[in-house]
């Protein structure tokens, strides 16, 4: 299932939500959260945004009106994740 999720993410363009992945895998959102956590731990995914989004905003007189949505976390595929998909050393079961 981890390989299926990895392939799903790699095959998408743009942003995909946990709910969409859950629908496509036929599982619950809670399980997708767990799968994503495993892919993060194994280094197949990494966090895509960091603190630099808000760095430097203080130069703007209206910086406090910044509306970056809170609570959003964005993950992206790593080279390792792509490699594991493209060149599986442990062949998936047939």
């Amino acid at each position: 299932m981890l390989r299926r999720l990895l392939a799903l993410i790699a095959g998408r363009q743009g942003v995909v939500s946990y709910d969409e992945l859950a629908r496509e895998l036929g599982v619950s959102r809670a399980l997708v959260e767990q799968l994503v956590a495993d892919l993060l731990r194994s280094g197949c995914l990494r966090m895509a945004i960091d603190e630099c989004v808000v760095e430097g905003c203080t130069s703007c007189p209206l910086h406090s009106s910044c509306s970056l949505p809170g609570g959003v976390r964005l993950w992206e595929l790593t080279d390792k994740g792509r490699r594991w998909l493209a060149e599986p050393q442990t062949a998936p079961p047939r």
């Binding site: 942003v15 895509a48 945004i49 960091d50 630099c52 989004v53 808000v54 760095e55 430097g56 905003c57 130069s59 703007c60 209206l62 910086h63 009106s65 910044c66 509306s67 970056l68 949505p69 959003v72 964005l74």
Partner: peptide, 22 residues
């Protein structure tokens, strides 16, 4: 990731431009 900095622009364009570095 362009959508995230652009979204900031609804408040003020400056953080949207600075945020483009992601």
């Amino acid at each position: 990731k362009s959508f995230l900095p652009l979204f900031l622009g609804f408040g003020c364009n400056v953080p949207a431009i600075l945020g483009s570095r992601i």
